[in-house]
């Protein structure tokens, strides 16, 4: 392993592991981290510093590995359900479980769940992984401008959702006070 790659492993290990942990259950992230390094090492010649940062590139590899894991997992789970085993079959389910476990305000949780998948993934890359919109765009393989407008739309939708909920709460409170 060359010095440059070893430095990336050391620098980004905890963040990539956190990304995988947030999107899986049952300690799967521990195994997937090794898969990410092996995949990244094999494809390191494809990293172009002119296009983006090593960190964003590694998140992109991690996302690819994660999707591969769930693809494999879904095949297994389709039949596994029939034979008596049940597991979350995609990262959305794992993220939902995390949001439930975090006892997030119900409006916020529902707002996130109602977002289109692409917007939600982008929002969580920025909020949870502390990626810039440009880095998140690199992870998702979309133009930076698209990512920025998608992120803006996601936050707007969340605002609408949350202010709608707030109005309902205010109205309920007012009605209760009137009684």
């Amino acid at each position: 392993m060359d010095d440059w790659f070893a430095a990336q492993v050391e620098r980004n290990g905890p963040d990539i592991h956190a990304y995988l942990t947030r999107r899986t259950t049952d300690g799967v992230a521990d195994d997937l981290l090794g898969d990410v390094w092996v995949a990244a090492y094999g494809g390191r010649s494809g990293f172009d510093p002119d296009i983006g940062t090593p960190r964003a590139w590694l998140f992109g590899v991690a996302r690819h590995v994660l999707h591969g894991y769930y693809r494999k997992h879904r095949l297994r789970s389709t039949m596994a359900r029939v034979i008596g085993i049940d597991r979350p079959t995609d990262e959305t389910a794992a993220v939902d479980a995390r949001l439930d476990a975090a006892a997030l305000a119900p409006q916020l949780r529902e707002g996130l769940r109602s977002l289109p998948a692409a917007e939600r993934e982008l929002l969580l890359l920025v909020a949870w992984e502390n990626l810039t919109p440009t880095e998140a765009a690199q992870v998702l393989g979309i133009p930076a401008g698209t990512a920025r407008s998608r992120l803006h739309r996601a936050r707007q939708r969340m605002d609408e959702r949350l202010s709608g909920s707030a109005q309902v709460v205010d109205e309920t409170t007012r009605q209760e006070a009137d009684r």
Binding site: M1, F5, A6, V9, E10, G13, P14, H17, D30, L33, G34, D35, V36, W37, V38, A40, Y41
Partner: peptide
Amino acid sequence: VLAHAAQRVE
């Protein structure tokens, strides 16, 4: 965990 993952790529 970090060491094990790094070892795999090694």
